[in-house]
């Protein structure tokens, strides 16, 4: 096989090359403008946020020594040489960690129930009345956008210190977040079962129960499990504002420079979150797999 490619005539080639150059130049120009815009934004933001790389460079030693210091006991020995001393408060901490998990569990469950009831009212294909849909959606958006800790701060004043405001804060935020994910799932269902149930004279609630719920249940459970893991992390800092869980002890340990306590509590939290992450991931895969087989 011997193929020769004839070169283009110079005039034609010049036109093409010029077009190519122009194209590239335009793209470069666009990139340059974008980079400049990002730079200007960064500069403005840096002034506003009092960024000072110098301070960071000067004090970065503090960070590394701080992290290293976390792993040494008060008597100057490495923590692993005396695990009993390191985890001296294990009993108390496990109790608080269990409380944290319980706060996350109850908050997630209450929020999921709230989201479940509201999501069908917010889905455009199931709730055709815009007068209901619009306020429900705005309410979910509000619950989702206001951070949990802000709710917790307000609830601490209304309900008193302790885990109750923590649970309620997590429940409200979860309701907003799950409600949105739920109604997006519900909007993507197959509408034929809905028509079927409506044709037999079923009411709206029968329709949701027998035509919609079977289609969305596995996705709902999967999203709820994912949210549970996020909420365990959220519940671990609820104690910062006095809303229960292990956060209070952690805050105290950090503020009072009980270095080894900080690492002990942090490792407990990280370990728990990882275990829950793995557990819920397995469960989610199993549930979604079950659905796929049907």
């Amino acid at each position: 096989m011997n193929v020769t490619i004839a070169p283009l005539p110079p005039a034609r080639l010049a036109v093409l090359t010029a077009a190519y150059r122009q194209n590239i130049a335009a793209r470069r120009r666009q990139g340059l403008i974008l980079a400049l815009a990002v730079l200007v934004c960064t500069a403005l933001a840096s002034i506003s946020a009092e960024v000072s790389p110098l301070k960071l460079v000067e004090n970065i030693g503090n960070f590394t020594t701080y992290i290293a210091r976390l792993f040494f006991l008060d008597n100057g020995r490495f923590v692993l040489t005396d695990p009993v001393e390191w985890y001296w408060g294990l009993g108390k901490w496990s109790r608080l960690l269990a409380e944290t998990l319980l706060i996350a569990y109850v908050g997630t469950a209450l929020g999921a129930i709230g989201g479940l009831f509201l999501c069908f009212l917010a889905a455009a294909n199931l709730s055709t009345n815009a007068w209901i849909r619009w306020p429900v959606r705005r309410f979910l958006e509000f619950s989702r956008t206001v951070p949990e800790l802000v709710f917790a701060l307000i609830f601490v004043i209304a309900f008193g210190l302790g885990p109750v405001p923590g649970v309620l804060a997590i429940a409200i935020h979860t309701m907003g977040a799950l409600g949105k994910q739920f109604f997006e799932v519900a909007e993507n269902i197959d509408m034929r079962p809905v028509e079927g149930v409506t044709a037999t004279g079923g009411t709206w609630s029968t329709m949701v129960r027998f035509a919609v719920l079977p289609q969305v249940a596995s996705n709902f459970v999967s999203y709820t499990l994912l949210r549970f893991e996020i909420n365990v992390r959220g519940a671990s800092v609820m104690g910062f504002v006095g809303a229960g869980g292990i956060g209070q002890d952690l805050l105290e340990a950090i503020r009072k420079f009980y270095y080894s306590d900080v690492s002990a509590i942090l490792l407990l939290i990280i370990g728990t979150v990882m275990l829950i992450d793995l557990g819920t991931e397995r469960l989610r895969h199993r549930i979604l797999h079950l659905e796929g087989r049907k």
């Binding site: 503090n62 960070f63 701080y66 671990s236 805050l251 950090i254 503020r255 939290i269 990280i270």
Partner: peptide
């Protein structure tokens, strides 16, 4: 696994 708030507390020390 460490919440942003906890990182904030640590960086405040630095």
């Amino acid at each position: 696994g460490v919440d942003t708030l906890i990182w904030a507390l640590i960086w405040i020390n630095v």
